[in-house]
Simulated scan of single mutants.
Amino acid sequence: MAASLTAEEFRDLQDRGESYALVDTRPAESFESWHIEGAINYTYKPHHEFDVEDFRAETGLEPADRILTICAKGKSSFDIVDELAAAGYDDVTVIEDGMRAWSRVYDVTTVPTESDGIELLQVQRRAKGCLGYVVCGTETRRAAVIDATRHVDEFVDAAESAGYEIAAVFDTHVHADHISGGRMLADQLNVPYYLGEDATDRGVAHEYTPMARNEVVTVGEVDVKALATPGHTSEMVSYLLDGEAVATGDTLFVDSVGRTELQFGDAEAAEGADQLYDSLHGTLLALPEDVTVLPGHFAVSDAGETGELTRGEPIVGSVGTIRTTVDLLGRPRDAFVEHVTERRPEKPPNYERIIGLNTGREDVEDETEAIELELGPNRCAAE
């Protein structure tokens, strides 16, 4: 039986800086669209003839090297181990369940706060770059969740491990890059689920409580204030948390801003960019400089690079720092709109289907389809 690691164990190995060669056996097209940083592509399918000299020539790997293998679902990467063992490679380990498992590796870290009355937990989905939050009132021990992914147990576990009970669930917008767990989590816990009031314009079919512009919902002792910040989508809201931090969804990241054509379409992307400019300069960047920005994503490249991510550290910034370090925010309106409109990264795979699921107009067939729909990094930033 081949040696194996779980995806979480591989993460730990990666974070320790251990030396290894990672061989990704998926087809070249799948590899090029999304892979783990530093991986070597060697396409292999079970029962195909294996040529060790071809393997050595393509990968540069010798029998003495420490090798990890990964594939889409953990099948072909097990088969190739037998071939490598027969060829004298005796230090080969499989990452169980492949990229499917890597896609659901999470970390939880604490965001520093000034007040003792609020605790902020950032839930990081490493492979996709999704960020969600557990916003906790330290006196009442009640919490709100913002932008939960479909792996809702990660948010429940984060809250329970810190000693909090989830009392409300919020989404900043109808997500296009991943399946939201917001409605599911609210149903599971029998707590309110909130979206911005303009979500009616997106055809949201499932039940939610609309939050009007500047409306405040108090969860425990933490005030959650809805700030209308359209641009990435028409119904986007950011949530100001006790005046100390702001969850910005896909409006503002620590190093970029949200793209605008996923909802508005290429023809009306400029309209979305114009709204985004107002949301940034009229609302978010008008907040006090020391307010902490809690973005909805961090950047993950197709090559798996996660430059902003350091395990155990939150991915956040202050309003003042982001205002002065993100070049795009210093441009006048016309130049901003032109840049956001013309710089259109590749669209997230399956985004129209995912929007259908997140509005409640469609249902996911099964876990297999959900996994397939979400494979790959997020692509919600304008650049």
Score class of each variant (00 low, 15 high):
G272N: 06
G272Y: 04
G272S: 11
D274Q: 07
D274M: 04
D274R: 13
Q275L: 14
L276M: 11
L276S: 00
L276P: 02
Y277P: 05
Y277A: 07
D278A: 13
L280M: 05
L280S: 05
H281Y: 12
H281L: 13
G282M: 09
T283K: 14
T283I: 15
T283P: 05
L284F: 11
L284G: 07
L284T: 12
L284W: 10
L285N: 09
L285Q: 09
A286Y: 01
A286I: 05
L287Y: 03
L287I: 11
L287E: 07
P288N: 11
P288R: 12
E289K: 09
D290T: 15
D290M: 00
D290A: 14
V291Y: 07
V293N: 03
V293T: 05
V293A: 12
L294K: 01
L294P: 09
P295C: 06
P295H: 10
P295Q: 08
G296E: 02
H297G: 08
H297K: 12
H297N: 15
F298A: 11
F298C: 12
A299N: 13
V300E: 05
D302Y: 07
A303K: 13
A303R: 12
G304W: 00
G304H: 01
G304M: 04
E305C: 08
E305S: 11
E305V: 13
